[in-house]
Simulated scan of single mutants.
Amino acid sequence: MVRLPLTPAEVERGQRLGALLRRARGERSMLDTALDAGVSPETLRKIESGRVATPAFPTIAAIADVLGLSLDEVWAEINQSDGEAEPSGSGRTARERLAS
């Protein structure tokens, strides 16, 4: 399977995600966080550094849970400045946008 190159917006979202996870992790070790989330420390390192800009949803959900972050917080942080938000009054929820 050939992966398409990431867009600049995807790269930026990945960097914001990594920064959010690093901040949330605080003084907690990367090893402990990764093991508690059921991912490898290398995977967590790559996500935090932005090298994996589009990690799998279950991976992010597990890491967020371990760090006490809601998925709403993660979504808001990574989509804060790239124009992803729907205009108010559009009537579409985030779940509906993802499903389309």
Rank of each mutant, 00 (worst) to 15 (best):
M1I: 04
R3C: 01
L4K: 11
L4P: 02
L4N: 07
P5A: 10
L6N: 04
T7H: 00
T7G: 02
P8N: 03
A9N: 03
E10Q: 14
E10K: 02
V11T: 12
E12L: 06
E12A: 12
R13Q: 07
G14N: 01
Q15P: 02
Q15W: 03
R16C: 04
R16P: 03
R16K: 11
L17E: 04
G18V: 09
G18I: 10
A19L: 14
L20D: 06
L21I: 13
L21P: 09
R22I: 13
R22S: 13
R23L: 10
A24M: 07
G26T: 07
G26D: 07
G26I: 06
R28C: 09
R28Y: 08
T33I: 11
D36Q: 15
A37R: 06
A37K: 09
G38F: 13
G38K: 10
V39G: 07
S40A: 14
P41N: 12
L44W: 12
K46Q: 14
K46R: 15
I47M: 10
E48M: 08
S49W: 04
G50H: 11
G50I: 11
R51M: 12
V52K: 08
A56Y: 09
A56K: 15
A56V: 01
A56E: 15
F57K: 01
T59N: 07
I60C: 05
I60M: 08
A61G: 05
I63Y: 07
A64H: 11
A64M: 09
A64Y: 11
L67R: 06
L67D: 11
G68H: 09
G68E: 09
L69M: 12
D72K: 03
D72V: 08
E73G: 10
E73S: 11
W75A: 04
W75K: 00
A76I: 01
A76F: 00
E77Y: 01
I78G: 00
I78D: 01
N79K: 00
N79C: 00
Q80L: 04
D82I: 00
D82V: 00
G83W: 00
G83N: 01
E86D: 08
E86G: 03
E86K: 04
P87M: 06
P87S: 10
S88D: 15
S88H: 12
S90M: 06
R92I: 05
T93E: 05
T93G: 04
E96N: 00
R97A: 04
L98P: 02
A99V: 02
S100C: 05
